[in-house]
Nucleic acid binder design. Structure first.
Lengths: 250, 250
DNA sequence: CGGTGACTTGACACTGATCAACTCATGTGG
DNA sequence: CCACATGAGTTGATCAGTGTCAAGTCACCG
């Protein structure tokens, strides 16, 4: 058994004594190990520190914290929030199960965002130095790691493209289509799902105000594109939403 | 001498017969090899295909092209442009000498942007598969590669934060401060430099219109923050500009 | 020179920000 | 159990910032 690098001091986190049978994890094919053979899988399981539970509203890491782990979301979801010296907050992304957190810190060795749990969540911490060492000897692991970083670059580029779209309605449509796609990725319904974040988080993410988000949702409902009941969303006309979104290819 | 993987068919590109003495390159400490020892440096030089020249206005690669190389800009500068099915163009970034191009394609193996030379430029193509293989055996090279990808992630996050700033003036100030910083990185003046891109490119990059860019520049000049003469910019009050920009830390 | 593209400036319209009032759900304590 | 406080969300009225359209200037190139 390998050493555990538990460093997270957040009072609300709880250590699970279990090991991490990635093979039995519901997200195994979508997380880092994508494309690894069973031998590699054995190795990567050794990298995981025991799982952490982060309660709703509490932080997994904070801006300025030393970077030691990447975190794979096993269950639940997070928002990442950047804030500057003047105190303006900006939501940088939402992370659901089988997605990775913490890649913002690769260069500076310090996190530049807060990661806040939107609901009580479980993460698998992945010691980055060990991952880097192991990537030296396991070609498929290196390849997976590069793909994961590449996916993050691609995600951010797609978001920049979306933010460049004038018109809040287009950006919101893009957001809903993205949420739908990721709901499907998790094996859930792609036409009907719950938004775990507050309206104000959506507004920050899309660079507009909460009132605009609210009005646009109402408007899209009046047009028969969606149905809104609090945080429960039904997509009624996916084709029209995608046309509104006008995203880049993927 | 290693094989050359010349695949770029752009009629305007020209192959240089020379090798690539990274050690003598003016950008050696800022490019990929950052932190490599001389032995690693010898190895990485073997990865570079002969340099390419791309004339002003022509493309290094196009959206949809198969991904084979990363490109280190040796001299000159580029813009990367994404466009969707409906034809909306969005400038995703500007790349100057000693910066890297092509990281958008890591996942899909296809470029999702056009890379267009803003002036006649020289790039060092870097065969990615070879780089990945070599990273298996050279720990410092792997580390550098991860840092480079991490820097791209960080760059995009900083841009997302900037785009979240309401007020075109703030975004433009942020842009100018960034241009200044990168001018200094290249060893040039940080208070006085030339913008190689058109106003319309700046506008797209900052998600506003060309008229807004023009008006904001005039306005900032009237306030004594900068001096504008066509594409030549002088920063007169860096402190005020940085305050306007209100960026995240780096 | 005349033509072209890059850029600037002005007038006006409209999206979305701001401020305020209101509903609704949730949780607390007497 | 109710009164109350709190936070999330919606809706309305108003206004500022920008987008849009149009005209004009400027610089460059054949």
């Amino acid at each position: 058994m390998q050493q555990h690098w538990i460093t997270c001091k957040d009072v609300s986190t709880k250590h699970h004594p279990q090991h991490h049978p990635c093979a039995s994890c519901p997200g195994v094919t979508r997380c880092l190990p994508l494309g690894l053979d069973t031998h590699d899988l054995d190795q990567i399981e050794g990298l995981f520190s025991p799982r952490l539970t982060v309660k709703k509203g509490e932080t997994l890491y904070r801006c300025g914290d030393t970077f030691r782990h990447l975190y794979a979301v096993r269950q639940g979801c997070f928002k990442t929030v950047a804030l500057n010296a003047e105190g303006r907050e900006q939501i940088m992304g939402f992370q659901f199960s089988a997605e990775l957190l913490g890649m913002d810190a690769l260069v500076s060795n310090r996190h530049v965002c807060d990661a806040v749990a939107l609901e009580t969540s479980e993460v698998c911490p992945l010691h980055f130095q060990s991952l880097e060492s192991l990537a030296q000897t396991a070609p498929t692991l290196l390849h997976s790691l590069l793909r994961v970083l590449g996916r993050e670059i691609q995600r951010e580029q797609a978001l920049m493209y979306t933010l460049g779209n004038p018109g809040a309605e287009a950006r919101l449509a893009s957001f809903l289509v993205d949420m739908s796609r990721r709901s499907a990725m998790r094996g859930h319904d792609d036409m009907q799902f719950n938004l775990p974040m507050r309206r104000v988080d959506i507004a920050s993410y899309l660079s507009c105000r909460i009132e605009t988000v609210s009005r646009c949702l109402t408007q899209m409902q009046d047009q028969g594109l969606i149905q809104v009941r609090a945080r429960a969303i039904s997509l009624l006309d996916m084709r029209a939403l995608k046309a509104l979104a006008a995203d880049i290819s993927p």
